[in-house]
Design a protein around this nucleic acid. Sequence first.
DNA 1: ACCTGAACACCGTTCAAGT
DNA 2: ACCTGAACACCGTTCAAGT
Lengths: 253, 253
Amino acid sequence: MSVEAKKRVPLSRERVLAAAVEIADAEGIDALTMRALAERLGVEAMSLYYHVANKAALLDGVADAVVGEILAAVTPTSAKDGADGEESGDPAPGLTASGAPSSDPSFDWRATLRTRVLAARAVLLRHPWAPPLLTRPGAFGPAAVFYFEGVLAILVRGGFSYDLAHHAIHALGSRAIGFSQELFTPGDATPDESDEVLEELAAQLPHLMGMLSEISHDDPASNLGWCDDQAEFEFGIDALLDGLEAARRRTSV
Amino acid sequence: MSVEAKKRVPLSRERVLAAAVEIADAEGIDALTMRALAERLGVEAMSLYYHVANKAALLDGVADAVVGEILAAVTPTSAKDGADGEESGDPAPGLTASGAPSSDPSFDWRATLRTRVLAARAVLLRHPWAPPLLTRPGAFGPAAVFYFEGVLAILVRGGFSYDLAHHAIHALGSRAIGFSQELFTPGDATPDESDEVLEELAAQLPHLMGMLSEISHDDPASNLGWCDDQAEFEFGIDALLDGLEAARRRTSV
DNA sequence: ACCTGAACACCGTTCAAGT
DNA sequence: ACCTGAACACCGTTCAAGT
């Protein structure tokens, strides 16, 4: 027994994935190597291959683990564990007792979806390395399936046909799960050209120059970095929800 | 002279980047290694470091090369090369002679931007490996600056303030340059569970099952794969443009 | 069933050296 | 100024072997 107490708890897929998330959180995704992961678990690198097929499968698993965290954040836990509300006698929201989709005129799908998306975003802000992982082919795992079942339920209950809801989910893209691909990240904007060349260049970019001079002055609230990502994200999701609501109204006439 | 003819043309940054694009087009981005690139250029791997700082700089350069191709596709070439229309005596579109932004009520910013975005998309469809590159920090190069100057010009001429145009560009995100991050790419959807487990799972996903059964049947036009990406992209950009037009109208009252 | 040790092929990158 | 050769540190992964 005393020997047993010293014996280390055996590895499991769950422990491997949890340790991988810890490494990525602490040191970034590039630091997540098979060797580093093994070391953190007090094990040799090759042992990992007993629990994950290879590195790609590891990253897929990590992605699904993060989505699982998102799922937990948007799923109200019921009093009894294991009962997730879908198992009661009542039909699921947006479904009649016979299983046909049914909309609910008093239901604010827009606000509900917005809240869900922002909650997902809050989780991703704790794992800023995760978004690129979620777009990898193969990263769409079980947790994502349940997350999007929820999104779909909101849309259907809000009056979207399955067809339109399908388009809407594509239109939302990564925004449906709380992030948007930023194309910018200027990072190290170190102009290594001479002032003269720079001025000539600026002359060819009148609108960009105009925008920059206006933006940097008139919004004292956005002094963290250049653009407030949270505010931009909310503007973007709202514009998209506006467009989707217009599409919904068009079809439900 | 006869010896000179045999001498190979010296490397240049441009030739390195062009060869890199060729490799990615032919064999995918993972095949783009420093060693493979050198071999294609008939040179030793270390020679590349004379023209690009390191691999990250190479990828940044490749990204800007692709954006350059996009820029060429959306920029109508004038009769005289070198004159790009901004150098005439007329003010740039969307600017008064004094340089202040001015909108043009008869200008259809929505259709113009839509056309530009779809043209950019057409280029990216030829380089399907490129989108992930464009989202890397540091990938926003000179070509992207000029591309977005053009986007901004369209918005301003269409009646957007610089501030609103700035939000709009963030809202468009990667869509502004012709792609949207697909979260799906089911790829190898090989359910390795038993039928019984699968059925139980399906019972928990009523909307997803409902949508799948409806989608797969009712649209005979979308038989290439599962979702027609081009159609979904267009639906998405249209929904977003609708939302942005609503925002523009709100501010210009 | 679970873990290890040694080895392999392949990376990006350094450095000093060639012309 | 431009390119090379040899070497280094580090990957993911194989295979046969241990318990």
